[in-house]
Write a protein that binds this DNA or RNA. Structure first.
Lengths: 342, 342
DNA sequence: TCCCGTTGCCCAAACGTTTGGGCCAAACGT
DNA sequence: ACGTTTGGCCCAAACGTTTGGGCAACGGGA
């Protein structure tokens, strides 16, 4: 597969062995675009390809990168890879990249400005051809700056400004959640909305509130709590909501992990989830359906979102004009809102 | 930060601007090893460094990679990045890599032979300096082959043969679990053991069974179930265990997600977890403590394991002889075994 | 004074690839 | 028979870096 004792196989070694010039070999092996024919006779081409395959030739990216100025490397920045949502999206990105002969490099930014800056710099130093940001903020000066600097990138999961992005249709998702809870008769509801700078949480919340407003019900500001997208955050927020005497009858968490935290808080308060209080999440993480009390959620095609983002970026890199994409979510009703017995 | 309109800043552009030779600039900027002094006068060196900083010079990895034959790239292969355990380990790896100026490239192998082979090939084609495998199998011909081919790698999380590895002390962890359950009086126990080819599951199970044997209690083979490391697998296994009339009073799942599945199954059977049946997991995922019924687990320093693996690899790449490392786990008792009220 | 060692820098080659431009011979058109 | 095209290949330069050797100038010791 790769014997480092042996001299590495290069274009040159192939050319020498066949008594040809290295440029001929290069042209033949670089896919028979229109050049293929002009490069060598069918017979020669065949000999080259056979030997290359036999020796297991793999072009050295240093050589070609140096010459062409392109690396076929894509940088992917996410808040955290250990967040299931982002790692799933990343899997989609990487899968699509692999199909195009591209390689991705992931980096955590921890939703922290400084980290993000240094990680981006490191990726640019690596000469990536383009970037995918999964940690955009609603008002993102850093990205604006990058764009004017001519760095090419797309956003995924979270949108920002009018940088090209691939995101779930979060406003619609929020509406689906509202429709579900309102349909079950809940008029006194609350939202665990995630951090305010993320479009995901903001849009889901906005859609949710809108739908209720369209039906003449106002969701008070005090019923919209901003916490991190994790279990502890969800638990804390739900605890606060449930402790008050006029507690809501339903809670919409914009993220499954926050919802799981809310489940715990409900239990602490002696409430039966699905009957005493309805709780729903978002993203339809694989875990949601398998929980002791299956969690109602809104399914988002995370992997597909990743794939599309990569495709969008390749089109951008090819010089095309691109437009943002919005992928539709689907409601997944389960027992945690009393909607179904799993 | 990086203006692609402007000519990229290279050693040459710096040298020209200062009326120096490119080699002088190179030596100065390449860290003042012993060469630094010999390369230029303190004054010249200072001017070079200042200009380089001002222009934001970043060495082109294609150039240096081509010349040195090293890429400062590390390939990391894991079953799935969307598995929280692996993604956390990967974060540790990447963190440690960053501190050393190395960049990691991750790839999913899905615990599938073919995928693994092609992904490895892709990484080698990228000319990575070394590899870290997180998906080793107990009897791993592929890795043996790679080793004899001279490819340099270390293993993480799962061990195999005597390839250098950094893993949790799973046998000890299994013993801790057994000690905990036995201490609570459980003599009729079962294990959800994960797939048989992974050392993690196998060693945890072995340690668990050993401890019981040491205390004169035999855990029957029929009480050790092999399923995938996920929620659905855990649920199915627990369902089978709990349906029989002489059901075990305690279940040890070698993975938190399998344990969560088991929680669901217990609920389906109308059993109260922590009183009617004890269930514990492994890894002490952040989720474990936050679940509605907090899950007893065995904490493993996943991030640290990742860090150590990267360090081990760098030592290996430096030509040192290295030895495998075993990191100790710690019991985290919680309500799911009735051990504590959270 | 001669020699030697240092300091401070330059020279040039090499790594593997791509690509615009040759050049020769055969085939073709008239 | 003579000019033109085309097929099939080679040449050479360039990308940015590192690194083993230079080579002058200068200082110090004998």
């Amino acid at each position: 597969m790769a014997d480092p004792k042996a001299r590495p196989v290069t274009l040159r070694s192939i050319a020498d062995q066949l008594g040809l010039h290295v440029s001929t070999v290069s042209r033949v092996l670089n896919g028979p675009a229109e050049d293929g024919a002009r490069a060598a006779s069918g017979d020669t081409a065949e000999r080259i390809r056979r030997l290359a395959a036999e020796l297991g030739y793999q072009p050295d990216p240093h050589g070609s990168g140096l010459r062409t100025g392109r690396s076929r490397l894509i940088g992917v920045l996410v808040p955290r890879l250990s967040d299931l949502v982002l790692s799933t999206i990343y899997e989609g990105i990487d899968e699509a990249a692999g199909e195009r002969g591209l390689t991705t490099i992931a980096a955590n930014t921890l939703d922290d400005d400084e980290t993000r800056r240094t990680r981006t710099k490191m990726l640019l130093a690596r000469r990536v051809d383009g970037l995918i940001f999964g940690d955009a903020r609603l008002d993102d000066a850093f990205l604006d700056r990058l764009a004017t600097d001519g760095v090419r990138f797309v956003l995924v999961n979270r949108r920002a400004g009018n940088h090209p992005s691939v995101t779930p249709d979060d406003r619609l998702g929020g509406r689906l959640a509202a429709e579900h809870l309102l349909g079950l008769g809940h008029t006194d509801v609350a939202v665990i909305a995630g951090p305010p700078f993320a479009s995901t949480g903001a849009d889901r919340t906005a859609g949710f509130v809108e739908h209720y407003r369209d039906h003449g019900i106002r969701v008070p500001e005090a019923r919209v709590l901003h916490t991190p997208f994790d279990t502890a955050g969800g638990r804390a927020a739900a605890d606060e909501l449930l402790r008050s005497p006029d507690r809501p009858t339903a809670i919409f968490a914009v993220n499954d992990f926050a919802a799981i935290g809310a489940l715990g808080a409900a239990r602490d308060h002696g409430l039966r989830v699905g009957t005493d209080v309805a709780i729903m999440g978002y993203n339809d993480t694989p875990l949601a359906a398998e929980l002791p009390i299956p969690l109602t959620s809104v399914a988002v095609p995370m992997r597909e979102i990743g794939r599309r983002a990569l495709e969008l970026l390749t089109r951008l890199l090819a010089g095309e004009d691109v437009e943002s994409e919005l992928l539709p979510p689907v409601l997944a009703p389960r027992a945690s809102t009393g909607a179904a017995r799993a």
